Simulated scan of single mutants.
Amino acid sequence: MNDEQLMRYSRQIMLSELDYDGQVRLTESHALIIGLGGLGSPAALYLAAAGVGTLTLADDDRVDLSNLQRQIAHGEADIDHYKAQSAAESIGAINHHCRTQVITERLQGEALQHAVEHADVVLDCTDRFESRDAINRACVAAGTPLVSGAAIRFSGQLAVFDVRDSAAPCYACLYGDSGDEDQLTCAESGVIAPLVGMIGSYQALEALKLLSGCGTSQKGLSTFDGLSGQWRHFGLGRDPHCPVCQWRR
């Protein structure tokens, strides 16, 4: 790192848990963020500001006026532009050291697997089970840690699935492989603006810990009730009969 970077990241480098070596690991790391909406916006901005060297931003959706209430990576001038490109421009205004790779097509199949295999961590910031299931399968196959977030109405969820640990569960251990046909979306049910910022920021924090090697990754599932301000934590074990990860040893 040069002198400008040392000054930029000085408040993190002074943390004994992170230190200079941890910051170097961040600058050399690569995070894949799938979904640049309410969750992906704060996650991407904080990872870039914290010094993650490369961010791949994947989203085939375009910015809509109704997104601006909560999707802070985008502004009024970005309406009708691709969210991934808009987020990349916001990142560039924050930290020119952060390299961005923009994908404006829906990641699926071989393209999804390739993107996951080339990342050090994946942040699932999508809102559909079909996407979450595919991302989880790709992460299990590649052995890439997955940080999953969700937010609807006043309720948020956060989970880390680090399949490098043979005892760790995957997303399908928790939700199975059939999904919820009645799964709600923000467009259908609404969401309070700061909630997605909270969950997306927690996703960034967990990703930073995984990439830098500091701290301990969250275990199990955490849920947040925005109306009461209370967090709840649920232990989660690996399902030996999981249809996605049962082959792991």
Rank of each mutant, 00 (worst) to 15 (best):
R249Q: 14
K83W: 08
D177A: 11
G179L: 01
A111P: 01
H241N: 12
S217D: 06
C170H: 07
P194Y: 09
H81V: 01
L26H: 13
I103N: 02
I79G: 12
T54W: 05
N2G: 15
E206L: 07
L158P: 08
V63I: 15
A77C: 00
A172F: 02
D59T: 10
I33T: 12
V163N: 01
A73H: 05
G226M: 00
A111V: 13
Q12P: 06
V24I: 14
E4C: 02
L32Y: 05
D61T: 12
H30L: 00
S66P: 05
M14E: 08
D133A: 11
Q113K: 12
S178G: 12
T56D: 06
E17K: 09
V160D: 05
A31H: 08
D3P: 00
C125D: 05
A172V: 04
G37V: 09
L6D: 07
G40M: 00
H30W: 07
G109R: 01
E130K: 08
Y9V: 06
I192A: 07
L123V: 14
D21L: 05
I94L: 15
S29A: 15
W247P: 00
L15C: 09
Q12E: 11
E181V: 10
T185V: 10
D239R: 02
Y202V: 04
G179R: 04
G176S: 08
A43T: 14
Y175K: 00
Q101L: 09
L18W: 10
I199M: 10
A193V: 09
H97C: 05
L158Q: 10
D60C: 07
G51R: 06
D80C: 05
L15N: 08
E188Y: 08
D60Y: 13
Q203H: 10
A159E: 04
D19H: 11
L57Q: 04
G237K: 03
D3K: 09
D120W: 04
A111W: 04
G75A: 09
G53C: 02
I13Q: 04
H74W: 07
S86V: 08
G215T: 13
A187F: 06
N136P: 06
G220M: 01
D127R: 03
R128E: 11
R11P: 10
L39M: 06
L158K: 06
A50D: 03
I33H: 07
E89Q: 14
G215Q: 07
A77M: 00
A58H: 01
S217Y: 02
V140Q: 03
L107Q: 04
L112G: 11
V147I: 15
M1N: 11
N2R: 11
L45C: 06
T27D: 09
F154K: 00
D124P: 03
M7T: 15
A58Y: 01
G226E: 01
R248A: 03
D133I: 03
C98A: 14
S155Q: 12
E105W: 02
G190V: 11
R238S: 09
